[in-house]
Design a protein around this nucleic acid. Structure first.
Lengths: 194, 194
DNA sequence: GCTGTGCATTGATGTATGATAAGTAATGAT
DNA sequence: ATCATTACTTATCATACATCAATGCACAGC
């Protein structure tokens, strides 16, 4: 399983097998059943997960008990709660598996070691952060500007292969609408020929 | 004006006057009148602005011609469009002054030079990125979970000193509601005693 | 095969917010 | 100071979406 992570790493930044071996002790393989909670809301956990296979969702629960999907993470995504991982404060959301998932648990130490060992590591992580910021800005703009149908169309365009792996209830909560509304949106789109 | 930026910098990371002088050539002082557009949507501009005094807003215009505030930036904020600044792609939004504003225009080169000259610079920037991500996640969660009144209350809590400097139309667009709705929300809150 | 449980759909009804329009207050220019 | 422009409020009506409740459907366990 670590090999998947190694290959992924080597795809983006030059990493020798020796370098990887030195970092390897900071990595833990986990095979996790569907519907397992990896990070609890309001707890402190500084680990990051790399998804080898499977699917993860991050979500919050509001005071009414309603869930709101913050993001989904399929294969080759990094998952953490910045509040907890970076700032050592209570996490803002839950992180949970939606499928049986193989993942690599990465300690905070890994980042520090990797930054020293591999010169390209830190800049690459910076790029990932920038990417995530522009992604979120796009999403905020959609939530402000577009209505349900547009948001759903954007979702299936962005994640064409996830639409059928994620329950509609959760897609609805990602879009900020109820499952009923999503169902109606889908009905309208179906008459238009998707 | 560069002194304000220098003091700000030295407050967060140890920077000698000599180090700062070496970077100074990558900084340009600008005094900009109210309502001046600094970055156009859909153009490429890799500069970052540091606000010394004044106030800036970033916003998009949708296909209906409506404006949507992405964020506001008062004194001591950094402003850029990641798409343009980091990825050299067309910017996602406009950046405009809401008040007469003094700012430092920072070139992309500044970042590279500073990272070499000052060891703490890159980690500090990483921290700013992480902070901005958790801020945006909070905002997404609010847009998904909360209704107008809660979002407005959160806004005035977050930016107590900005509420009276930003026209309500723009606050409304930040919250994802119409100015009329904001007016209604404010009326209800007024009867409750703010 | 049944039967239960969890999602998705559908319909009836309610509500927060949008759209439009018009009035008032504040701001800025001459 | 006056007038023009912009910003905010108020009112009415329209609508997208929520809520509540019922039904349908699929799959799991027995």
């Amino acid at each position: 399983m670590k090999d998947i992570f190694k290959e992924y790493l080597q795809k983006y930044i030059p990493t020798t097998d020796e370098q990887f071996d030195q970092l390897s002790s900071e990595l833990t393989i986990k095979h996790v059943k569907k519907n397992t909670i990896l990070i609890e809301q309001d707890t402190i956990d500084d680990s990051t997960f790399f998804v080898c296979n499977g699917l993860i969702r991050a979500y919050t629960i509001d005071h009414q008990g309603k869930e709101h999907a913050i993001f989904f993470a399929p294969e080759h995504w990094w998952v953490n709660d910045k509040n907890s991982f970076y700032f050592c404060e209570p996490s803002l959301f839950y992180v949970e598996t939606l499928e049986d998932t193989d993942l690599v648990q990465i300690s905070r130490k890994f980042y520090d070691k990797a930054a020293i060992l591999i010169p390209e590591f830190a800049p690459w992580q910076t790029k990932i952060l920038h990417n995530s910021i522009r992604f979120m800005q796009k999403r905020i703009n959609l939530l402000l500007a577009a209505q349900a149908e547009t948001r759903y169309l954007d979702f299936i365009k962005m994640y064409p292969n996830l639409v059928h792996r994620i329950p509609q209830t959760m897609i609805a909560s990602y879009l900020g609408i109820t499952p009923e509304s999503l169902s109606r949106v889908r009905k309208v789109l179906a008459t238009k020929g998707i």
